[in-house]
């Protein structure tokens, strides 16, 4: 247990498991902080019950969030968090099921489940923390890795352009699609707060910093320098168009709320069919 004054958000953390495993300068803690502050607000508003919050994660650095949150939590298989979460939500609809994963976990190995959950407008919140690299396994190319980058498995340069997951999810039936960045933590909190008040499939990509692995690949090992570098590339827009969502490091990385709608969710639709 922490000594001295505890933090007001400690009630949402398994403090016995701290310190966490994330590297110095890693953005996941900032992202998680924003997410938990939003949950705290919704709990205090009476919109959400703490015992109904479930974190479901796959495998990877971001997936380790399930270690540290003091909610019901599942640390499952690589890529399969959305499938597991869908089962839990359908079996017990009063749960607020939140999936957190990296871009490899959610959009790489788990891409098919992401597509179908968005297509169904499944009642889930999916948070994809994008660090542009497979970090836990030591720096291999990821779905979002910039074109041409040298990684441990693209030693001649990455021949593939990055996957724009915001655009992919927006092309389906999600009710909410946003992109945030750990360089702007208040927006992480704000978008998560919004998502918690909505129904259907809600997707937030959170751009993040990985100085230990991604930073090594781009020659920026210093956390602050990397943070400022990402911050300088981020462009905040109130209502960005999907066409602006490409991960374009030259023009800038546009964050904002790409899609907000209130279509009937999967659970809404099957309620009509279960007479």
């Amino acid at each position: 247990m922490p000594s001295g004054n505890s933090h007001p958000l400690d009630q949402y953390l398994r403090t016995a498991r701290l310190p966490h495993i994330w590297c110095p300068g890693c953005g996941i803690g900032i992202a998680l902080g924003g997410v938990i502050r939003a949950i705290d607000k919704r709990i205090k508003e009476g919109v959400l019950k703490k015992e109904n919050v479930v974190f479901v994660t796959g495998i990877g650095c971001s997936a380790r969030t399930s270690f540290y949150v003091n909610f019901d939590a599942a640390h499952t298989l690589h890529g399969r968090a959305i499938a597991f979460a869908t089962g839990a939500k359908l079996a017990k609809p009063e749960l607020e099921v939140i999936v957190i994963g990296g871009d490899g976990d959610i959009a790489g190995i788990g891409g098919n489940h992401l597509l179908h959950a968005a297509k169904r407008n499944m009642d889930l919140i999916v948070l994809m923390i994008t660090n542009f690299v497979y970090a836990m396994t030591g720096g291999q190319v990821a779905p979002t890795t910039p074109l041409g980058l040298y990684t441990t498995t693209t030693p001649h340069g990455n021949p593939e352009p990055p996957l724009n997951v915001v655009k992919v999810v927006s092309s389906l039936n999600a009710n909410y699609v946003a992109r945030a960045s750990v360089t702007h933590p208040l927006l992480v909190e704000q978008y998560m707060y919004k998502a918690l008040g909505m129904r259907g499939f809600r997707f937030i990509e959170i751009l993040s910093t990985c100085p230990e692995v991604f930073g090594r690949h781009i020659g920026v090992r210093d956390p602050l320098t990397l943070y400022n570098s990402l911050r300088s590339k981020v462009i905040i827009k109130q209502s960005p168009s999907i066409d602006e969502s490409d991960l374009d490091w030259e023009k800038g990385l546009v964050i904002g709320e790409y899609l907000i709608r209130d279509n009937p969710s999967f659970l809404d639709r099957i309620k009509g069919g279960s007479k």
């Binding site: 479901v56 599942a74 399969r80 499938a83 597991f84 979460a85 869908t86 089962g87 939500k89 359908l90």
Partner: peptide
Amino acid sequence: NAVIGASW
């Protein structure tokens, strides 16, 4: 995986 999630 959904079956496991539902069981939980």
